[in-house]
């Protein structure tokens, strides 16, 4: 691992963490509404995966702020979207769960569990048909692996030989139901191993996530076939801001916080000499300024105009390729 990578990881994970802590505050102030799902505690998976995957289409679940930030989405446009403003990345019509930017190959933000898995398979099929090599990254939670669409998507991806990296972030809870009550198989990668190479990794260690994703990307693009990673992780907050998360003992949460992904990254980076205290301080200042600017931008932005209610339902355009 290089110094540059450690610096990049720290910057993105810290940005994700601080951005979401601020989201929580703005939610409590009433500036953000609706369902707000925070990824605090899961940053190593999100940052390690997006950085490791590099170029390629990205399909995400509703817990996607950090994924969007890691992909390079403008924090101001994300915050404005959360505030429901016209300047938001989805014009204030999507909110927290629906961030889209095709220019960044970022295709949501989907709020129906497992529904975006077939989208990723279709996207990979299309890329392959058009002669492009780039694979597709599809991220979803442990809850999705109990849904029929999950198995449909795995089957089709393997059958059609399309380059999708299925990345399951296993935080052990489907809202308030522990995995022991929802899944017969406890090791979720076993659900995929008969379809494709499937591994289980430590999702709290960004270096491990990065390494596994780089390898997986190489595999899917070399062989044009799918691959599965289960990353073991934990969310500190409730499922969304509407959920206190009190079905878990404080002891359990504290135990996971002892292996906080940002702390782990710093410990390792200091030990290896990849980062200095001074660098960290500078990054922290930069992150603070970015988050502050994002909130200021969102606050200053206008509400969508009334006409926007009716736009974007249809585009109404016809292609003229077919005579």
């Amino acid at each position: 691992m290089s110094q540059t990578l450690a610096e990049k990881f720290y910057y993105l994970m810290k940005l994700g963490r601080e951005f979401e802590i601020r989201c929580k505050e703005e939610y409590l102030k009433g500036n953000i509404s609706g369902f707000l799902h925070l990824a605090i505690g899961e940053e190593a998976v999100h940052v390690g995966a997006v950085v490791g995957f590099g170029k390629g289409d990205l399909f995400c679940p509703y817990r996607e702020h950090v994924l969007a930030l890691a992909r390079g989405m403008d924090p101001r446009l994300i915050m404005a979207e959360l505030f429901g403003k016209a300047t938001g990345v989805s014009k204030g019509k999507g909110g927290s769960m629906h961030l889209y930017e095709p220019k960044l190959d970022f295709f949501g933000g989907n709020a129906i569990v497992a529904a975006h898995l077939p989208h990723a398979v279709g996207a990979a099929y299309a890329r392959k048909l058009m002669g492009e090599k780039a694979g597709v990254l599809c991220i979803f939670g442990d809850g999705a692996t109990n849904n029929g669409t999950f198995f449909e998507a795995l089957n089709m991806a393997s059958l059609w030989e399309v380059p999708v990296l299925f990345l399951c972030e296993n935080n052990q809870y489907a809202i308030g139901t522990h995995i022991s009550k929802s899944s017969y198989l406890k090791d979720l990668y076993l659900k995929a191993k008969d379809y494709m190479p499937a591994v289980q990794i430590d999702g709290m260690d960004v270096f491990e996530v990065y390494k596994a994703v780089v390898e997986a990307k190489q595999y899917i693009e070399t062989y044009g076939k799918p691959y599965f990673i289960e990353a073991l992780t934990y969310r500190y907050e409730g499922h969304s801001m509407a959920d206190k998360g009190d079905y878990r003992s404080p002891r359990e949460i504290e135990m996971y916080k002892k292996r906080d992904p940002i702390d782990l990254l710093l410990q390792k980076s200091f030990k290896e000499g990849w980062l200095t205290e001074e660098q960290v301080k500078l990054i922290d200042q930069k992150v603070e300024a970015i988050v502050e600017e994002a909130v200021a931008f969102a606050l200053a932005s206008a509400e969508p105009s009334e006409e926007e209610l009716y736009t974007d339902v249809y585009c109404g355009v016809c292609s003229d390729v077919i005579p």
């Binding site: 077939p118 989208h119 279709g122 996207a123 299309a126 449909e152 059958l159």
Partner: peptide, 28 residues
């Protein structure tokens, strides 16, 4: 067979994969 695709009996993912294809610019 690449443009006329036989699928499994998986209606939700027939439409779902078609959506993914359309997002990338195909016209499924």
């Amino acid at each position: 067979p690449k443009r006329v695709i036989d699928t499994p009996i998986a209606e939700n993912s027939i439409v779902g994969t078609a959506i993914g294809m359309a997002m990338m610019g195909l016209r499924p």
